[in-house]
Design a protein around this nucleic acid. Sequence first.
DNA 1: GCAAAAGTGTTCTTCGTACACCCATGA
DNA 2: TCATGGGTGTACGAAGAACACTTTTGC
Lengths: 272, 272
Amino acid sequence: MENEKYTYQYPHPAVTTDCIVFGFDGKRIKVLLIRRGLEPYKGRWAFPGGFMRIDESAEQCAERELAEETHLQLTHIKQLGAFSDVNRDPRERVVSIAFYALAKKSEVLGGSDAEEALWFDLDDVPQLAFDHDYMLRKAIAKLREDIHFSPIGFDLLDDEFSMTELQNLYEAILNIRFDRRNFYKKMMQTGILEEADDDALYGVALSECMPNKQMKMKDIEQLFSPNPVERFSSTEGSREAKSHPGRKAKKFRFNKERYDEMKENDEFKLEF
Amino acid sequence: MENEKYTYQYPHPAVTTDCIVFGFDGKRIKVLLIRRGLEPYKGRWAFPGGFMRIDESAEQCAERELAEETHLQLTHIKQLGAFSDVNRDPRERVVSIAFYALAKKSEVLGGSDAEEALWFDLDDVPQLAFDHDYMLRKAIAKLREDIHFSPIGFDLLDDEFSMTELQNLYEAILNIRFDRRNFYKKMMQTGILEEADDDALYGVALSECMPNKQMKMKDIEQLFSPNPVERFSSTEGSREAKSHPGRKAKKFRFNKERYDEMKENDEFKLEF
DNA sequence: GCAAAAGTGTTCTTCGTACACCCATGA
DNA sequence: TCATGGGTGTACGAAGAACACTTTTGC
């Protein structure tokens, strides 16, 4: 152990990464925290992260630490910036490179795989270790900023989502209310959404042999009786936390190919 | 020398800062580079910057290095991000925290105080040291992004500027053309510009005793004859690089107080 | 059937864009 | 006096905001 020494002519700070992971449970924005098991700040909540190895980039470090500590494999990890205040760590001089990442709704609802890792409502975040309170404020600001013009919302929802879910997400992040009809129109005319048609459940043939669009869901079920399909197999999302029933919501998918194509040609426009 | 050693149990990267300074000469966007006098990359151009001291933050380091190497005292230094590729520096593992800053037009036109520091046209930037080419691309992208919604243009102009100068700046950064009249309206209705009234040159009394707005500059000079004021003392900016005369341009100032106030109340809106 | 949520279209206002004339200036 | 650049207003069209009724569903 004694010979595990690394010497330099000038003092070097340690470099860590921290990862601010946001999620959405259908109602509120959440952030993933882990409880520190070691000093300093033992027992306090903090972002997943740790010391950068000498043979990995900060990005690699952030992904590795996130996987180790929370078992989350996330794409869309973006850099938030470096935090370098001289006294931000009581142990030694530590510069932290912070990232932020977005987790899909199912990962939030599933809870965390890891011990001592929990999703916190943004309003219920306790006092954090180090300068992580400050980091969180910066991260929230960046999330708000990014969602104004980038379709990052889809990274917080599952692959299929209802327009209402999407609207709830935007309202939760931006803390404003939208008119349902205008939101729908605005989203649709971006051209990056496609309908996840429920007809698919019944096979392609259905829409061909049944061109009558007036047909109700009830009628369709009759075709399949006496074994009607479980109509809500994919809608637990919109049922949870609901006190009253409502009409079944159409599901949509984010058309990433289309989005990339539009962005390439500078055709994409979305502003909130 | 031998005892100037700093030892750590785990390997630590070195941390440097680099500062990408943009300027505007009235026609084109410029970037400030220094020629490296030492290995590695001796003789190559690079951004001003250097190793972070153990008792300063990255921000302090960036400002210090910038002052040391270019004699520029800049405010509005914003972090661009950390660059941490494992092999980005041939000497040892180095993480660089990059900043970008904006210099006022007069500082660009005045040239650089420092030896071996030069303003380069963005199109004429040579191959840079380290990963600075990559940094530059990121910085340009961020500059373009920021100017879409933040009034950072004023930091690249002198305190008083004509609408045409401002338009040229926007056109140079965004590489698009605007209609003069629409640009004027858009800028004025943001509410963050105030006229730098030339009457001020003649004192407050003038506008009171001379309410006639039809009065021409010639008439005003007559009031002051036989020592007419030098009318163009403050307009060299709009004359430089001009092949033909034109009407004298009204000057404007950025009303920072008003802007801060509007931003505070979320009233400020500007989009390009 | 009832309460709650979702689907949908029209009008009005606002903002952005296109466009042309006159004036001030220096040569 | 002329060539150049700057100051300004209007008319049109597109996009956003306001707004209500009907349908589906679970209870």
